[in-house]
């Protein structure tokens, strides 16, 4: 039982960066913008967060710096794709390329540096519960932040007027524009929110999860976060569950190996990706369902008055 509780705990921790970045990307995809630069933004944020943590010794400052770095890169990306109407896929990939080069360059002096240790307190009282305490209540605050964020974004998107506007823009920017909404500004705001959250996720990796900086350390998690938004059919709660599922599959595969069960690591590693394809197929089979969920203008350029 305790082993299972530990597995659950590890799964929550592993799923958290995916969830935070995924929620961010979900917001900007809901507004109709697809950002393939997630990996690059996370890397820049990871290095910014680590540098700040190293300089100040404060985890909060480090996460904030990561958020800010993600927001800045996202703003540049947003300006390019929303105002200059560059292609979202190519620009996103270029941002990824730039981000990995830039973070590696900036981080040259930070390799082999160590952050101050911080104790993870967990939730008072609840942390001492048998089994449940181990499984759920001894996590870093960011883990709970991810859950709160999910609830918050779900509420915002589906229960507030602004959320409705955001979704309307993702659905049809032309009609939203006709109704007098500042489509491009709202899109930019959504992209910046996406970058900010990717930034928090990146900084979480380098400051809390692994804590270290080395170039390329995000190692594809930005791409997984991108896959998650589809996996979740752009619903925050599903995204959170999806992130835990991804984290869980990874942890389970390592867990099985540690138990001495022989698995070809390649096939085990394939599972999350195949699972995404399967889920994609399942949700996409019903045209109505996918249309209800998928932002119709995703990836398309909008130019007011054109």
């Amino acid at each position: 039982m305790n082993e299972f509780a530990l597995l659950v705990a590890a799964t929550l921790a592993a799923g958290t960066p995916l969830a935070i970045a995924g929620i961010g990307l979900l917001v900007n995809e809901r507004a109709g913008v697809l950002n393939l630069g997630a990996e690059g933004m996370m890397l820049v944020a990871a290095v910014a967060g680590f540098a700040t943590g190293y300089a100040t010794g404060s985890e909060v400052a480090a996460l904030a710096a990561g958020a800010l770095a993600g927001a800045v890169i996202a703003a540049i990306y947003g300006w390019l794709v929303i105002w200059l109407n560059t292609n979202q896929y190519a620009t996103g990939l270029a941002v990824s390329l730039f981000g990995s080069g830039f973070s590696a360059f900036v981080g040259l002096g930070l390799v082999g540096k160590k952050l101050e240790e911080t104790e993870v307190a967990g939730v008072p009282l609840l942390r001492d519960l048998p089994v449940l305490g181990v499984a759920l209540f001894r996590q870093h605050p960011v883990v709970y932040l991810a859950m709160a964020l999910t609830g918050g974004v779900a509420f915002f998107l589906h229960r507030t007027r602004s959320g409705l506007v955001l979704r309307a823009i993702g659905e049809s920017p032309v009609s939203a524009h006709a109704l007098g909404y500042p489509v491009r500004r709202i899109r930019l705001a959504a992209v910046v929110v996406g970058g900010t959250l990717c930034g928090v996720a990146g900084a979480y990796l380098s400051v809390v999860y692994t804590p270290l900086w080395v170039e390329g350390m995000v190692a594809g998690r930005g791409w997984i976060a991108l896959a998650l938004t589809t996996f979740a059919t752009w619903r925050p709660t599903r995204l959170l569950l999806g992130a835990y599922l991804f984290g869980g599959v990874t942890m389970l595969q390592l867990d099985l190996q540690a138990s001495g069960v022989q698995v070809a690591p390649q096939f085990m590693s394939m599972l999350p990706y195949l699972a995404t394809v399967v889920v994609l197929v399942l949700i996409s089979r019903n045209p109505l369902w996918i249309r209800l969920n998928m932002p119709a203008s995703l990836g398309k350029t909008f130019f007011p008055g054109s």
Binding site: A10, A14, T210, A219, T250, A258, P265, S269
Partner: peptide, 27 residues
């Protein structure tokens, strides 16, 4: 000795996860 393969020379978050899996199994 329990062994976990990460399929990479270099993937710090995954190395962390592998270490966690081993620790969870009593290593």
């Amino acid at each position: 000795t329990r062994v976990v393969w990460v399929g990479s020379w270099f993937d710090p978050p995954k190395e962390t996860e592998a270490a966690q899996a081993l620790l969870n199994k009593g290593a």
